[in-house]
């Protein structure tokens, strides 16, 4: 079979092409600035926070990746790093901190506990912070090594560089809790929180 390639002559560039080029340029400039100077809000609760501190200290030094300044106030932060387990008692706190952060904002969930509840499948623990705030990057590990966290940060850089100011992604808008006071429908929360892996086998009798 023979392919017929249709050719057309265009008089100059189309205006859309120029606009797209311009948008790319703007996106590139904005995203590189955003990605390369992320101000982290360390929401460190438990053991993972110690590894987070190790990542911040001299040997791993995440200032190399533009995270020089840790913002201890959510109002000056770009990325919320939830390092450690999140009990129900802390749930309204992280939600409030997330709400206080200005857009654009991202969330890294560091460690098994923040991502899924980890080994704590019990009455006290939120089974994954994604039932409460939207999460961009999950870093696995218990605790993740500093290299792991740095890799997660680099992934976030990648994600940020792929975003565009000009398409209306819903995550650039505030996502308040719905009228039930939840972020996700209850069925979905139950599904996310279902026991899996070893925590299926938790019995009191031997």
């Amino acid at each position: 079979m023979k392919h017929v390639i249709e050719t057309k002559t265009v008089s100059g560039q189309s205006p859309n092409y120029l606009l797209a080029k311009f948008q790319d340029l703007v996106d590139w400039a904005v995203n590189s600035s955003r990605a390369n100077s992320l101000w982290p809000m360390p929401f460190g609760t438990a053991c993972c926070a110690i590894e987070f501190m190790a990542t911040a200290a001299s040997r791993y030094d995440f200032a190399r990746f533009g995270m020089e300044r840790q913002a201890f106030s959510p109002r000056q932060a770009d990325v919320l790093i939830c390092a450690g387990r999140l009990p129900f008692k802390l749930a309204p706190v992280i939600r409030r901190i997330y709400d206080q952060m200005p857009q654009p904002k991202w969330v890294i969930s560091m460690g098994a506990c923040a991502s899924t509840g980890g080994i704590f499948d019990n009455y006290a623990m939120v089974q994954g912070i994604d039932t409460i705030v939207p999460v961009d990057v999950y870093v696995p590990g218990c605790p993740p090594r500093p290299e792991g966290l740095l890799y997660g940060v680099l992934l976030l850089h990648k994600k940020i560089k792929g975003e565009s100011l000009f398409d209306h992604v819903p995550r650039r808008e505030e996502q308040p809790l719905d009228d039930r006071g939840l972020r996700l429908p209850p069925g979905e929360i139950d599904e996310i929180s279902e026991p899996f892996g070893n925590s299926v086998h938790q019995f009191r009798s031997a």
Partner: peptide, 10 residues
């Protein structure tokens, strides 16, 4: 249920 726990916590 987990959803109810999350709701009460929030």
């Amino acid at each position: 249920s987990r959803a109810e726990q999350v709701r009460q916590a929030l």
